[in-house]
Design a binder for these strands. Structure first.
Lengths: 354, 354
DNA sequence: TTGTACGCGTTATCAC
DNA sequence: GTGATAACGCGTACAA
């Protein structure tokens, strides 16, 4: 006896065979009633659907996956959900894939490549049909593992014009170059930089490269004492600005921040120090979070449509699953939001006497 | 011929049988080498693992799920990832479940009960073993559907002391009661309210009930013209405050906001209107986002540890899967962060002449 | 410790 | 339009 040899108290879950028996049809027809309803006579279909509903039956996913070789699962691997940027990307990706009947598996690496690899293995072991991964700085062999399984994937958030991976993102270096040029055009020559950790983070590295490159073109280099790397928090933004302003002169007249949170921290600290923004000091952010436009003064920052990144990644993966070999996604545009935290330098920032 | 009858150009994926043949063992031993390695002789195990790695084999999830009746999948259904609150909950839930080898499926309803139901069906159809759902205001039959499948679940974010569902969250009504009492204790008697949409949202409804209840105990009612419901955005916070302040006297001396975003908007608008906070007007938020403490003045708000909510939900579901019938999660504490945006009312807010 | 043999529940193929 | 039947790939009692 296959099931219930020890008479169970919990009734066994119904199977397609039970529905078929009750409807007086074969399991094949039950399956068709659910998957290709147009190929089943309307009366029979309705009867099957009703009986299935009564019995509380739906196709068992494992059986269906085994026979059809489809799981309708796609994995997305991100550093953390605690940043709006990634949350937006995942949200949009999920919405777009849901339209195609695909469900999203989520994994967070917490910026740890070992966790990233573990999450990835778990996803492959759950049968994901495709993957979206933030960042290309992964452990050696990670992409080989994905390719070996012939799972289509896309690298999200980053963007390079390269055949190495398909990318759905924007040009981080270009975006920061654009910030730098805005400040250079205003006449700034002494820069400070407050940024989030760059190790293992190709996006941040690209941004720094873009900034340094644009400055170098003008014969300008960042002084080490004017560069602070740390947690992407409001608090570190404050600390970073304070440390820079306490260095000996010449003090920078422009502070570039790795994201808006740091920039808002810097703005708050500038006010606390009595430094006038933008007259004495220009400050730029990155991301254009909701609060940025409402700061005092409103923050000049870079807007990137993260939801669009998620959508493009989703569309690309859908195309992979449906067509086979789609074109790589186009890079997402970025827009410098010129507001009141940047201006031509009028005077050097002065600290009040202690 | 089972496979490759039409000679395929793409080599077929390796199966356990291939690994077994290469290692000179049976498929049973291959399976054991992966699932219960301690029951396989070390040399043989290592040999199998090496061959599997070389061949790029890992157990096919559908076959494994079918035979073991385990998918190691848990679903989480939230309104949106665009709010830190839910993103934090999901992030912590995912981290905690990953420790147990469980992968998380995510679905967003966008505050739409039809989408919620569709997402839920999809998750059940993918074989989730348990579910975490934000909010108990779901379509009729949703919870019946879950129970019919005997899938353990927990309602996240909300909390009621009720046998109807297991809850992992906090007492929304109590939290708002606490905000109201703080303002009442300061001497406020005229209140305004700016809040996010309450329809279909049991958390918001509970909060409003808590507020109105605490006021009613003191014989106070909210005037309709002092209540504004709309998008949970900075902008609506500004608009709401402006509308309230433009009503005829007596104007409220305290504004309760449904979340920090609205409260920060209100704070910004108050500054724009020349209304002194907290001397003329007290403003409260909810959530204690990072920016709240750095506003001018720092925002009095309610802190809830959303990551802890996610963790408790995860622990409860793990216990369901492992033990069977754990105790319901304890409610998460909330803490009123007393800062500078609230004070005893000194004078009524005055609008400058237009 | 290892192998044998069977069941897991569905879908796809091919007749009819 | 429908039914019979053979995969699908693995886990696991049971036997050895």
């Amino acid at each position: 006896m296959a099931r219930g040899s020890k008479e169970r108290n919990k009734a066994a879950a119904p199977r397609a065979l039970d529905v078929a028996a009750a409807a007086g049809v074969s399991t094949a027809t039950v399956s068709r009633a659910f998957n290709t309803p147009e190929k089943v006579a309307p009366e029979i279909r309705d009867k099957i659907l009703k009986i299935a509903a009564d019995l509380g039956w739906m196709p068992h996913p494992a059986g269906a996956a085994l026979a059809s070789r489809r799981t309708w699962l796609v994995g997305v691997l991100i550093p953390t959900l605690d940043h709006d940027v990634f949350a937006s990307q995942v949200g949009a990706l999920q919405a777009r894939l849901a339209e195609a009947g695909i469900t999203v598996l989520i994994g967070c690496s917490n910026y740890d490549s070992a966790q990233a690899e573990a999450q990835l293995r778990a996803m492959l072991a759950r049968g994901v049909e495709a993957l979206a991964i933030v960042g290309e700085a992964q452990r050696e062999g990670v992409f080989d593992m994905i390719r070996a399984r012939r799972v289509p994937y896309v690298v999200m958030y980053s963007y390079r014009d390269s055949a190495e991976h398909p990318f759905a993102g924007f040009d981080n270096a270009g975006a920061f170059r654009s910030v730098a040029r805005h400040l250079l055009d205003l006449g700034h020559r002494d820069f400070g930089l407050i940024h989030q950790p760059a190790g293992d983070n190709d996006r941040v590295q690209a941004r720094l490269d873009g900034l340094r490159g644009a400055l170098a073109e003008n014969g300008i280099a960042l002084r080490p004492q004017h560069v602070h790397e740390g947690a992407p928090s409001l608090l570190f933004g404050r600390q970073g600005l304070k440390a820079i302003m306490e260095t000996s002169e010449p003090r920078p007249t422009a502070i570039v921040c790795g994201n808006d949170t740091l920039a808002m921290g810097a703005l708050i600290e500038a006010r606390a120090l009595g430094i006038k923004v933008p007259d004495e000091l220009s400050i730029t952010g990155f991301d254009d979070v909701a609060m940025a436009a409402h700061m005092e003064p409103p923050l000049t920052t870079m807007r990137v449509d993260n939801a669009e990144i998620g959508r493009r990644a989703a569309d690309y993966l859908r195309a992979c699953l449906e067509d086979g070999a789609p074109d790589d996604p186009q890079p997402v545009e970025f827009h410098l939001m010129l507001r009141k935290s940047t201006a031509a330098p009028r005077s050097r920032p002065v600290l009040p006497d202690k």
